[in-house]
Design a protein around this nucleic acid. Sequence first.
DNA 1: AATGAATGAGGGTTCATTCAT
DNA 2: GATGAATGAACCCTCATTCAT
Lengths: 231, 231, 231, 231
Amino acid sequence: MSLSKFIGAKSDEVQAKRERRKEARPGELLDAALDLFVEKGFAATRAEEVAARAGVSKGTLFLYFPSKEELFKAVVRENISGRFQEWNEEFRTFEGTASDMVRYLMKVWWERVGATKASGITKLIISEARNFPDIAAFYQQEVVRPGQDLIRRMLQRGVDSGEFKVMDMDYAIFSITAPMIFLIMMKHSLGACVPQDYPLDPERYLTAQAHNLLNGFCVRRDSGKEPRGRK
Amino acid sequence: MSLSKFIGAKSDEVQAKRERRKEARPGELLDAALDLFVEKGFAATRAEEVAARAGVSKGTLFLYFPSKEELFKAVVRENISGRFQEWNEEFRTFEGTASDMVRYLMKVWWERVGATKASGITKLIISEARNFPDIAAFYQQEVVRPGQDLIRRMLQRGVDSGEFKVMDMDYAIFSITAPMIFLIMMKHSLGACVPQDYPLDPERYLTAQAHNLLNGFCVRRDSGKEPRGRK
Amino acid sequence: MSLSKFIGAKSDEVQAKRERRKEARPGELLDAALDLFVEKGFAATRAEEVAARAGVSKGTLFLYFPSKEELFKAVVRENISGRFQEWNEEFRTFEGTASDMVRYLMKVWWERVGATKASGITKLIISEARNFPDIAAFYQQEVVRPGQDLIRRMLQRGVDSGEFKVMDMDYAIFSITAPMIFLIMMKHSLGACVPQDYPLDPERYLTAQAHNLLNGFCVRRDSGKEPRGRK
Amino acid sequence: MSLSKFIGAKSDEVQAKRERRKEARPGELLDAALDLFVEKGFAATRAEEVAARAGVSKGTLFLYFPSKEELFKAVVRENISGRFQEWNEEFRTFEGTASDMVRYLMKVWWERVGATKASGITKLIISEARNFPDIAAFYQQEVVRPGQDLIRRMLQRGVDSGEFKVMDMDYAIFSITAPMIFLIMMKHSLGACVPQDYPLDPERYLTAQAHNLLNGFCVRRDSGKEPRGRK
DNA sequence: AATGAATGAGGGTTCATTCAT
DNA sequence: GATGAATGAACCCTCATTCAT
């Protein structure tokens, strides 16, 4: 807090407000753009609409981003968190069982990503991947791969400790990620359109999913043989 | 199969080919449109491109479909199979265990939907749901709900027979559907952009997923208590 | 003239008209564009105006030229005549004196270029050279240089035959071209704005200019010494 | 030269510098604007660029000139010298021959106009005449006409003294002005783009041009009859 | 029925101009 | 006076849609 508050009074305050606005502009625009891109897709989102939602005029948008496509890339860049170092550390020092870890992973993922605006970026990239292949590749490298590595280490720890069965890791990883991707797509797609059909509590769903995945549906171990139904 | 084949001879054959082509027109357009809508989204797909891929001129497209939006709806209508009656019957008379059924469901779903062009419609609707809420609602009612009902009956059968534990059915259903949705999104999105990162065999993935879901990761039953990791 | 006129009648005629229009479109657009670019410059000419002058809608312009800049280049390309081979031949076989040739050159240049729409292209390129340096270079190479070569040969012929004095050819060439460039700029610039100040007959001007250039203003030969005026 | 230089001392000097800068502002803007208008034309010149080149902000430009068009007019006004009174006097008292005068005119014109930034204004007005007809008329009246009158008097003096032939004055005037206009257009247009093609020394060109004009190309007087070449 | 030339409303982008600081 | 963020009219260009052939 600066002294100017006591000696500068009014003009400084106004100055501060304007500067705060100016500094905040790009962020406000990125927020508005993320919302709209997630909601309607890149092509169907109009630049003017983004500007309006951010409370500025169309021209102002192009003061901060040279084109709609650059705005899109900035939205992605801004929202792709490189928080994996932190998360890796968190999991390296985790003290519970591997099962605890699985549950914990899903829980914190929801709290930090799934439940926040950041989840929109995943929906956005999955929806637009074919139109922006380089962004898709970037996301794959920066987010998907580190995420898979983290999950792989987690599962391996369970296997190494004898807690988990030996399993095909490449496939098991997707057993963990699929429900998260699913949850995001539902949240931003069908779930947003027909909410009455998705009255589920995401956290509870993830808990149930983790439980099912860890223990299985079956009372006794299932043989795993091929089905014998007709056809 | 028409009689004209037997009474027309050669010149009729040509006529037949032309008529077949003519009658096939809308179908070819719908096929082309499905591909492009899935690939690029509704807004980014140009009508002329659809026509070109179907091998007709731009004008012809509008001869069969009054507008791009109507084309979109026709694509959805055409590809949303009302095959649940048939499938319900198939599952009602299924003779194996509930576990067999789960595996069988995933397998035939992949063969009949996931691996075919029909999978595109799911990706399409999920991507465009927010832009076409009425279509989303229609899909929800015609496809999602019947599908969930089918899965619910399947799981209930397992519970009733003592093969499956008692579980929260509303959530368990998603444990079955999530990997299928996931597979579709990957196939038509990131997987199509960075194929080297998705070298998985979908059928094997589904088998593994079914196995994990049925038997769990754990060697022994996991307690299911909350994780005790830091924070 | 085709027979269709006698057997096809109406539908063929209409077809012909439409095709003629279609074929004529680019030409009509180029004509309109040349006029407007000459009149107002590249930047101040609006695409819609070009279209309107050609009697078509804005969109049609872009059916034939992918951008305003490509339209500009097409205008230049279309109007830069590579007629120098023909002209070289004409001058090679010319039978009069070198003085005749100078007068003839100016006369036919006026008839074939100066008086026609083609003169606009020179004004256009001179006005826009700095904005389109590559086009300027192209024009320099395709038009200016061949033109200068032609004039140089003409003057050299006069010198060789003893009709003209020995002179610095590089500079004499500009004595021939300057009045032509001048005439073009006046025609499309000041002369078009204040016509009452330019009531001159271009052909007579060129004749007078040729006469002055060939015989000089002076009754007797002037010494050519440096001027002795004050300063 | 102002008195402040003698009474102000140091602090005043700073003050003077600032005021000089302040007072110089419009001049710097006009200079920058002239350069850019000459180079790119009125429409293609951006106000911000003018301001930047003058070292001020965009807003400041509009502090001094209410609009881009007014800036343009001010540029023209500023650079159209009303120096004809002075020049008329200079020529009235000129003591050499009429031929000397012609050479002298071209020489001093080059020194005082052609070689300086002032030449740009001619190129500018010729290029933009059609877009600003009133400015063209103003220029015609304030510059072209007085210039032509000056040249006419000069030529008439030669005719009156028996040094020059009797000639059609209206046309002879253009024989003097054409090379000057030509030189300006080349300097600011093609010559600036393909400099290797215009390695000529302007002063030498004007001298040669004056010589050619005064004495003619021909060794003997040419008949002036119509050419007899083919066609 | 099929074509494809033509249309014009709509959206991205620029930039002269304004105005709060 | 000076600044530069903000504005919005205007322009280039696209593309769904029409319609004469």
